[in-house]
Design a protein around this nucleic acid. Structure first.
Length: 578
RNA sequence: GUCCCCGUAGUUCAAUGGAUAGAACAAGAGUUUUCUAAUCUCUCGAUGUAGGUUCGAUUCCUACCGGGGGCACCA
């Protein structure tokens, strides 16, 4: 089962109008047939539409348009509906009265940051594992992407009503740690090393890893010796150095996570599951694992997968075995977990198929509880930027780069004082980077142009922030914030278009959450910002008449609120000026 | 070889099986005595190929073509 199917099972009220219309139509038709109530893509067709007549036409062998007309005549919801229309080839279109939208706007203004949140019938806890950097290797752009994506998924799940345990599983053991330790030994640490900036320290460590990788073949024996010492916790010069590097690296990681707005609830070092991984493999060898060429393997072919090594002939559990042990550890620490979702790059898809299959085979309790979702690469001009190629682009580089672009942009546009400029640049840069990463379907790669780096115009984070800033400026400058909305209010096309889109927010947050798809929220917010900007260009607020002013102020406040709520779900902060 | 993901304007992305396939960027034209022009308005332009299921397919199925990723002791 997919995680999306599990999440969709929870009964929450998403769109009362849709439910009401579905009920009404069901009452009228005599045959049982599957049909949907949906928002027509073309808004002039109405607010909702149903394909029920076309579905019935197949069963009844009658003209779908006539069926539609007959049903339309019988629909009786005078308080809600302004118009019901049957249209070729057989759609029934519903136009909702403006009163409904006005009352929904009042809900936004009243509920504020709670607008669009859901509550579950009972408390349920989800663990989300994301980030997963290595301690003795660079924090890559992939880790940045994973961290930003994971944070957003956490917020979306929380919005659905789940309690989320944010978890980081970091790689502090294995060959890479031995390579780096050996590399640092060879290069030697300078005397003033401790006084270096943590990013500079990490850069040195990353270089040592690259150096060791290149020199691996000639120095394999020495490096493997260090690896064993680390695994066996032997006290040597090398393992002391290993510990020192680990400590520095964790500080570096913590700083990056903090910059991105992430504070983990639970940390799992890979070294911590090493022993139990070994034990699990040993206890189950002969049962579901078998010995082969001195190693212990899982023959995945019988489950439609491939063969994976669980324990090497050197007696070390592989990362697959460690992930199995981690699964047990998570459910031991949180026995009441509703489910676990691990978020990683696409290269681990097959690995996690094995993890999940093995966990479910070992223990029933993992059935429909353990899930994996992957995200595509962050590419520069269609090419990978990751570590093995000569020119490494690290996670900190793209953070730095986006900040630089934001600073330049603001310097040429505005004249704020230095401190303010810096704060605006920080928020705008992160908005740009986060939106870039989150605005794509997880299954697809994200491609960026290093010249522009992140967009500040069009479909971008800053565009949405800008709409928020404009709405805030209106609210700041309007003296009277008293908002009274008569129910027989007349609205022009721009006001109505904005208002209708505002009220879609709850459905979109729901969809975005259950489908584990932040990009759906990105699309929604962009459309909202667009509609607000069009409204802004066509409908002056402060200079409007008293009647106009009431609805326009309310719309500005509602837009600001919903933009803020939605951006929060993406992990993007708002600012009042930019 | 095999398994998985992806093929939509020149480029980057949308489109719960529905109505005329939407945006943004780039290109061209306009827009600022008016709440912040990081805005707004207009023009140009696309579903890899061949079948199938369906009243209806960008969406589902099959084959092929193209791109990416995984597949034994690294994680």
């Amino acid at each position: 089962m997919k995680i999306q199917e599990i999440l969709k099972k929870e009964k929450v009220s998403i769109d009362p109008i849709k439910e009401l219309l579905h009920q009404e139509v069901s009452k009228i038709i005599e045959n049982k047939v599957n049909f949907v109530i949906e928002h027509p893509a073309e808004e002039s067709h109405g607010d909702y539409a149903t394909n029920v007549a076309m579905a019935l036409a197949g069963v009844l062998k009658e003209n779908p348009l006539e069926i539609a007309q007959n049903i339309a005549k019988k629909i009786n919801l005078p308080d809600l509906l302004e118009k019901v229309e049957a249209i070729a080839p057989g759609f029934i279109n519903f136009k909702i009265k403006n009163d409904y939208y006005i009352s929904e706007l009042e809900n936004i203004l009243e509920q504020k940051e709670d607008y669009g949140t859901f509550e579950l019938a009972e408390d349920k806890k989800i663990m989300l594992e994301f980030g997963q950097p290595n301690t003795h290797k660079a924090f890559t752009v992939g880790h940045i992407k994973g961290t930003i994506s994971g944070l957003s998924v956490c917020k979306l799940f929380e919005n659905l009503g789940y309690e989320v345990v944010k978890t980081n599983y970091y790689g502090d053991i294995g060959m890479h740690t031995a390579k780096t330790t050996w590399g640092v030994q060879q290069k030697g640490l300078l005397e003033d090393f401790e006084s270096w900036d943590k990013h500079k320290k990490m850069e040195f460590i990353t270089e040592a890893y690259v150096y060791a990788t290149q020199a691996f073949d000639e120095n394999e024996k020495a490096i493997r010796k260090i690896n064993i010492d680390i695994y066996q916790k032997n006290k040597t010069e090398a393992t002391e150095l290993y510990e020192r590097i680990k400590k520095m690296s964790l500080e570096h990681q913590k700083a990056i996570f903090a910059d991105l707005g992430v504070a983990y609830d639970k940390q799992y070092p890979e070294s911590q599951v090493y022993e139990s991984a070994k034990k699990i493999v040993e206890e189950n060898s002969k049962k579901i694992f078998v010995e082969s060429q001195g190693a212990i393997i899982y023959e995945g072919e019988k489950d439609g997968l491939v063969t994976w090594v669980m324990k090497t002939s050197e007696d070390n559990p592989t990362y697959l075995a460690k992930d199995i042990a981690l699964g047990y550890q998570k459910f031991e620490d949180y026995p009441d977990l509703f489910l676990n979702l691990t978020l990683t790059g696409v290269e681990q898809v097959d690995h996690f198929k094995a993890v999940i299959k093995i966990l479910e085979t070992l223990d029933e309790k993992f059935k429909d509880k353990y899930f994996h979702t992957s995200f595509g690469w962050l590419l520069m001009n269609g090419k990978k930027t990751s570590s093995r190629s000569g020119k490494n682009i690290k996670g900190t580089d793209i953070l730095e780069e986006s900040l630089k672009v934001a600073r330049t942009k603001i310097a040429e546009l505005k004249d704020y004082d230095t401190e303010k400029k810096e704060e605006i640049s920080r928020v705008v840069a992160l908005a740009g980077l986060k939106f870039l990463i989150l605005s794509h379907d997880f299954n697809k790669d994200v491609n960026y142009d290093p010249e522009k780096f992140v967009d500040f115009e069009g479909y971008s984070g800053p565009y949405i922030l800008y709409a928020y800033v404009r709405a805030q400026a209106i609210l700041r400058k309007s003296k009277s914030l008293e908002i009274r909305l008569p129910s027989d209010l007349e609205m022009n096309e721009w006001e109505l278009s904005l208002l209708k889109w505002l009220t879609r927010y709850p459905q979109k947050t729901y969809q975005s959450g259950v489908e584990v798809a932040p990009y759906t929220m990105c699309n929604y917010l962009y459309e909202l910002a667009q509609r607000f900007n069009t409204f802004y260009a066509n409908c002056p607020v402060i200079k409007a008449s008293e009647e106009e002013k009431a609805i326009r102020l309310a719309l500005s406040e509602g837009t600001a609120q919903v933009l803020k709520n939605g951006l929060t779900l993406l992990g993007i902060e708002t600012i009042e000026e930019m």
